[in-house]
């Protein structure tokens, strides 16, 4: 039964007086309901833990044998931050940033051609299979995969042996427990997170656009640079965020493959929690890392905006004044 129509055939019903807008009987379904699961999740597993970390970072360690810090407001101070800024930690922070930026960049360089090829050159019936293969590593536990790399990179492992047999290297492989080892491990671990959004971005580009570009005189390379890649930028940004952010906080890869020479900030934070039981210092470090990541993202965004402005300025066509 409609309540919207004024011309109702039933004069006895409570039809609204002509001229007055019909009142909706059914309340408009509140759209925010749809977002409730996401908000609940966000509050329980993101906002609350981050709040807790912030709280801990203000507290102080009770003793080296007690895990939980004292967080009563009377002891609140920023001392932990001062300690976390210990120059001794600086190299690890910088190394973390370096590994993350390099890792993100390598993932991007590997993923762009692959995702492009997968989205535009591979026949649709094979695409699903290949995408599945990209995800195969995700079927195995992150930890197990990384331990697998320990075997591969080991100085006495089979890869080392093979390389020496063929004569490519003369000594044992010196990659395990180095920064390079971690770098290889993170690229392997995070590559699918870069490939997927890029694939989606390339796949969504209307083939007519690249044809139009060629029709207008651009060869394949020019078409890729001027049409395909600019349209895939959102995918590239999504991929870079998906790789860079978790990579900055990575703990497993660095602790299994990095040793002392390849340690990352995540390992440092974990040590504070797990070994020295100094949750407050660990929390302060975690807060600093969050700030560090945000600052890095802001810098990248700035660089991105400048690059975009340059590209746009070069493309701009300023027309001569119209004759009145």
């Amino acid at each position: 039964m409609t309540t919207d129509t004024v011309e109702t055939a039933d004069p006895g019903s409570a039809a609204p007086a002509p001229g007055k807008p019909a009142k909706r009987r059914r309340a408009r379904s509140p759209k925010f309901l749809l977002a409730i699961p996401a908000w609940t999740w966000f509050i329980l597993f993101f906002a609350l833990p981050v709040g807790l970390v912030l709280l801990y970072s203000l507290g102080e360690q009770v003793s080296t044998f007690v895990q939980k810090p004292n967080v009563s407001p009377s002891v609140w101070s920023l001392d932990n931050f001062g300690k976390a800024f210990d120059p001794a930690y600086a190299p690890i922070f910088w190394r973390t940033l370096r590994i993350s930026i390099t890792g993100t960049f390598i993932c991007l360089v590997i993923s762009v051609p692959f995702a492009y090829w997968l989205a535009t050159k591979v026949s649709p019936k094979w695409r699903g299979l290949l995408l599945g293969l990209v995800l195969v590593p995700f079927w195995t536990n992150f930890l197990v995969r990384t331990i697998g790399w320990q075997l591969i990179l080991a100085p006495n492992g089979f890869v080392s042996q093979k390389l020496q047999d063929i004569g490519i290297t003369s000594g044992d492989l010196a990659l395990l427990y180095t920064q390079t080892g971690v770098q290889i491990g993170v690229v392997y671990n995070y590559l699918p997170l870069m490939i997927l959004p890029l694939y989606v971005a390339f796949e969504r580009i209307d083939p007519a656009l690249t044809e139009a570009s060629k029709d207008l005189g651009a060869n394949r390379l020019k078409t890729f640079v001027q049409v395909t890649m600019p349209l895939a930028v959102p995918g590239a940004i999504a991929g870079m965020l998906l790789v860079f952010i978790p990579l900055m906080g990575d703990y497993i890869t660095a602790s299994l493959l990095g040793g002392a020479k390849g340690s990352m900030a995540g390992v440092l934070v974990a040590e504070q929690f797990l070994n020295t039981f100094n949750w407050s210092r660990g929390a302060a470090m975690a807060v600093i890392m969050i700030g560090f990541i945000l600052a890095a993202l802001a810098v990248f965004a700035g660089i991105g905006l400048v690059l975009r402005a340059i590209v746009r300025a070069r493309r701009r066509v300023s027309l001569p004044e119209a004759v009145a």
Binding site: E211, D215, V317
Partner: peptide, 27 residues
């Protein structure tokens, strides 16, 4: 295609969405 002295008006126009009208024409 890029070496042919031929241009096409595509069925769904295929204008480049990331460029202005003038930039499309200048392409």
């Amino acid at each position: 295609p890029h070496k042919r002295d031929v241009n096409t008006v595509f069925q769904a126009y295929a204008l480049f969405p990331h460029m202005s009208v003038a930039e499309n024409v200048a392409y």
